[in-house]
């Protein structure tokens, strides 16, 4: 008997638990999505033909996409700055970026509400110093959702970028400029391509996680910012509409799964080339 077989039983509790309380429920959801009211794909057809559901699907993709782009635009300089900072500043920045991992999304969304709402801090200050006469609507809309989501998802962009940038040899960039490239050209032709693996991984992670977001858009968004996760919750909580909610959940699951498969495929290809 090998060592591996002797410890195999240690797996049983975890596998049993995940099997019974996770895999079975998810497959139950899948079954409900195709078996009610009658067997068939009618729930999926409803989702992809009614404009309300299509609108929510589009919102989901648009919000996740915008979050990804903003995270990339903010994450890039942040990661660069982290790589080139003095050690104690780098430690501080890492701690600051990691804070979202450790604090509840609920707490952070609530904090944004306090800051942004009509009677909130920003409006109080702006009205107080006379810059604006009427409070601005900066929350319960797309802006609020994106502000909140980018803050939460930034670490998923920063850390892959950081690990790539930390390994880039600075002499490449200097060589390009010494050979006559303008700094801007050297950046786009030399530095950015070297960062692409990290940027790609970060973007995929942010996009995938953003697709399933629920709390931030529910608290900081308006009526037009409903994402698929909120719709699933509402369908079950308010209407008990399991068939449709299940179908929506399966659509989200398949979308997420496909994107993960793409990441895996791309990273395998890349490793194959090197």
């Amino acid at each position: 008997m090998t060592a591996g077989n002797r410890t195999l039983w240690l797996l049983i509790p975890a596998v049993l638990l995940i099997g019974v309380c996770f895999l079975y429920p998810v497959s139950w959801l899948l079954q409900r999505s195709v078996s009610e009211p009658v067997w068939g794909l009618q729930n999926y057809i409803t989702i992809f033909s009614k404009s309300i559901y299509l609108g929510v699907l589009w919102n989901t993709i648009a919000i996740a996409g915008a979050t990804t782009i903003l995270c990339a635009l903010i994450g890039f300089p942040v990661a660069y700055s982290m790589v080139h900072a003095r050690p104690w500043i780098r430690k501080l920045l890492i701690f600051v970026v990691l804070i979202p991992f450790w604090t509840s999304i609920l707490v952070r969304s609530f904090a944004w509400l306090v800051i942004l709402q009509r009677g909130g801090i920003i409006n109080d200050i702006l009205v107080g110093i006379g810059m604006i006469a009427e409070p601005l609507d900066i929350v319960y809309n797309r802006f609020g959702v994106l502000l909140g989501m980018v803050q939460v998802l930034l670490p998923f962009m920063v850390f892959p970028l950081y690990s790539v940038m930390a390994r880039i040899d600075g002499s490449f960039f200097r060589a390009a400029t010494n050979l006559g490239a303008t700094p801007i050209r050297a950046f786009f032709r030399v530095y950015l391509p070297l960062c692409l693996p990290g940027l790609g991984t970060g973007a995929m992670l942010v996009f995938i996680i953003a697709l399933g977001y629920f709390i931030t858009p529910a608290l900081l968004g308006g009526r037009g910012d409903t994402m698929i996760a909120q719709l699933i919750f509402e369908r079950i909580d308010e209407f008990g509409d399991w068939p449709l909610a299940s179908a929506l959940a399966i659509v989200l699951l398949i979308g997420t799964g496909l994107l993960f498969a793409i990441i895996k495929g791309v990273s395998k290809l890349r490793r194959g080339r090197i």
Partner: peptide
């Protein structure tokens, strides 16, 4: 494969886990 299965609850969007567990529980 076993590791992937055990890690699945982290990868699957939590709203799906929530709805599925709620339905069965």
């Amino acid at each position: 494969a076993v590791r992937a299965v055990l890690m699945a609850p982290l990868v699957v969007p939590v709203i799906i886990t929530a709805a599925a567990i709620f339905g069965v529980f």
